[in-house]
Design a protein around this nucleic acid. Structure first.
Length: 428
RNA sequence: GGAGGAAUGGCCGAGCGGUUGAAGGCGGCGGUCUUGAAAACCGUUAGUGGGGAAACUCACUCGGGGGUUCGAAUCCCUCUUCCUCCGCCA
C-alpha cells in the first residue's frame, strides 16, 4: 500500500512511474474518492466534537442539579446524525481502501524501464556451464533413472505436480536445507525461525497476497487457514502491528518452510519435472531495515543468496527485473537464474526484493528512530536463499556424469555423507 | 470437544456510567543534592489519524467487532487470545 498523503501530493509523478509497469495504474477514481472520504471524515469529527462538548455540558449541569431533558433530546438528534454520517464515512473509507489495494508499488529509479521480461537487465554472471562430452539429460530423466525421484507414485498418492523423493534424493533435499540454513545463520548473520506453515487471512492481507491472488493459494476448508505460499508471509507478519526499537534494526531472519501454490493459470508451463510443483521447499531470507539502509541491504541480501550458488559451484546470472516484470509489492527485484544443462536454459532460483515501506504500511510495522522521535514504517525485504527443489535440479543436472551418476559438490558432502549418487541399490 | 476464569499505558496494577486518556507503583528520561555514583527528593514520560508554518488543535484507541445511552474502560451481545480443570492426542 502506498502512502496516502504522498500519493495525494505527488499524484502525477506517481502516475508516471506506475505507467512504466504497464497495465492500468488504478488511479482513475482516486482523487474523487479521496475528496469524498476526507469531506465525510471532517464532518463526522466536527459533529463528534460538538457531541463531546454537549455531553460534558450535561454532566456539569446535572452536577449542579439542573434539569437537562431538553439538552439530552438535542444530543440524541445529534447522535443519530452522527451515526448516519459515520456510515457514509465508512463507505468512503472502504472505497478508497479498495483503490489503494489495487495500486502496485512505485518502481525505484534504478529499475530499468521496460514492458516485460525481455527488458530485464543481466548485471553479472558467475561460473561456467560444465563441459560435457555427452548430451546432458534433464532431471526428470536422471532422477527416476537413479531411483531418487518418483512421479508415478506421487500421482497415485496425491496428484499431478507432486513428487516423491527416495533414498539419496530425499537426503539431498535435507542436506540442502541444512547447508543453506547453516551458511545463512553462521556466516551471514541471520536468525533461524521456524514458523507455522498454515497462516490466517490477516497475514495474507499484510503482505498483499490477498485479496488479489487468492486463486494462487490453497485454503483449508472450514478454517481461516491457508497453506503458506512462501515463508515471506509468516516471517513478515511476525512483526505486524508492532513498533520495533531502532537499535534492533536491521532484523535478519532465515526460515526453512514448505511452500504451497495452486499454480492456477500456469497450465502447460513447466509441466515436466519438479521446476513447478504445488508443494516445494524453500529457505527464505527476510529483513526489516531502516528506510535509509534498505537498498544497501538489498545488495547484501542478494549477495547472501548468490553465496549459496557459489559455494555449490552452480553457474548463474543475476538479473534486474524491468518495471514491467516487477511484482505487485516490489520496488526493485533481482532474480538469480541458475544454469540448467538438461533444460539448456537459465531458470529462476531466487528472487530478492525491496518492498520499501509498501508491505510495512499495510502490515503496520514501524520503528522508532530515536527515543523522542515519531515512529515511521520500516522497509521490508525478502529473497529466496534458495528454492530447494530447483537447487536440487541444478545439482543433478550440472553434476551429472556420462554414466548417469551424479557427483556431489564438495560443500555438500558433509551434509549428505556421500560423494556420488548412483542407481545402485535404489528402491524407487 | 466440555466447564470455569481472565484481557487496562513499556511493565505491574486501580478504576460508583459523567474533567478517567485513565489513580498508584516499577521502569525510562530530565533535574536538585554529591568530587563521582548510589540513595533521597522534584519534574516528566502512550499510540494512530485529520488540520496547522508553528504554538497548538480535533477525532479515535482500556483484546477485536457490534449494541444500549445525551455520555461507556465501566452495562449488554459476539468474536479472538490466554490461564485452570476434564476429555482426546504427538
Amino acid at each position: 500500500m502506498l502512502d496516502l498523503s504522498y500519493l495525494r501530493n505527488n499524484l502525477e509523478a506517481v502516475e508516471a512511474r506506475l505507467a512504466l509497469r504497464g497495465g492500468s495504474t488504478g488511479l482513475d477514481r482516486f482523487q474523487e474518492v479521496d475528496r469524498e472520504r476526507r469531506a465525510a471524515i471532517t464532518e463526522v469529527e466536527r459533529l463528534k466534537a460538538l457531541r463531546n462538548a454537549g455531553s460534558e455540558e450535561i454532566a456539569r449541569a446535572r452536577r449542579e442539579g439542573k434539569d437537562t431533558t431538553e439538552q439530552q433530546a438535542r444530543m440524541r438528534e445529534l447522535g443519530e446524525k452522527i451515526k448516519a454520517l459515520e456510515e457514509t464515512a465508512k463507505q468512503a473509507d472502504a472505497a478508497l481502501e479498495e483503490i489503494l489495494r489495487t495500486i502496485p508499488n512505485v518502481p525505484h529509479e534504478s529499475v530499468p524501464a521496460g514492458a516485460g521480461p525481455e527488458q530485464n537487465v543481466e548485471i553479472r554472471r558467475w561460473g561456467r556451464p560444465p563441459e560435457m562430452n555427452f548430451t546432458p539429460k534433464a532431471h526428470w530423466d536422471l532422477g527416476p533413472a537413479l531411483g531418487i525421484l518418483d512421479f508415478d507414485r506421487a500421482a497415485k498418492i496425491t496428484g499431478a505436480r507432486f513428487a516423491v523423493y527416495w533414498g539419496l534424493g530425499a537426503r539431498l533435499e535435507r542436506a540442502l536445507i541444512n547447508f543453506m540454513l547453516e551458511v545463512h545463520t553462521r556466516h551471514h548473520g541471520y536468525t533461524e525461525v521456524l514458523p507455522p506453515f498454515l497462516i490466517n487471512s490477516a497475514s495474507l492481507f499484510g503482505t498483499d497476497q490477498l485479496p488479489k491472488f487468492a486463486d494462487d493459494l490453497f485454503k483449508c476448508e472450514g478454517h481461516d487457514f491457508w497453506l503458506a505460499p512462501t515463508a515471506e508471509v509468516p516471517l513478515t507478519n511476525l512483526y505486524r502491528k508492532e513498533t520495533l526499537p531502532a537499535e534492533r534494526l536491521p532484523i535478519k531472519l532465515a526460515a526453512f518452510t514448505p511452500c504451497f501454490r495452486s499454480e492456477a493459470g500456469s497450465y502447460g508451463r513447466d509441466v515436466r519435472g519438479i521446476i513447478r510443483q504445488h508443494q516445494f521447499q524453500k529457505v527464505e531470507l527476510v529483513k526489516f531495515t531502516r528506510p535509509e539502509h534498505s537498498y544497501a541491504e538489498l545488495e547484501s541480501l542478494t549477495a547472501d543468496a548468490e553465496d549459496i550458488l557459489q559455494r555449490l559451484g552452480l553457474p548463474y546470472r543475476t538479473v534486474t527485473l524491468s518495471t514491467g516484470d516487477l511484482g505487485f509489492s516490489s520496488a526493485k527485484t533481482y532474480d538469480l537464474e541458475v544454469w540448467l544443462p538438461g533444460l539448456n536454459e537459465f531458470k529462476e532460483i531466487s528472487s530478492c526484493s525491496n518492498f520499501e515501506a509498501f508491505q510495512a504500511r499495510r502490515a503496520e510495522i514501524r520503528y522508532k528512530p530515536d527515543a523522542r522521535g515519531k515512529s515511521d514504517f520500516v522497509h521490508t525485504l525478502n529473497g529466496s536463499g534458495l528454492a530447494i527443489g530447483r537447487t536440487w535440479v541444478a545439482i543433478i543436472e550440472n553434476y551429472q556424469q556420462s554414466d548417469g551418476s551424479v557427483v556431489v559438490p564438495e560443500a555438500l558432502r558433509p551434509y549428505l555423507n556421500a560423494e556420488r549418487i548412483t542407481a545402485e541399490g535404489a528402491l524407487g
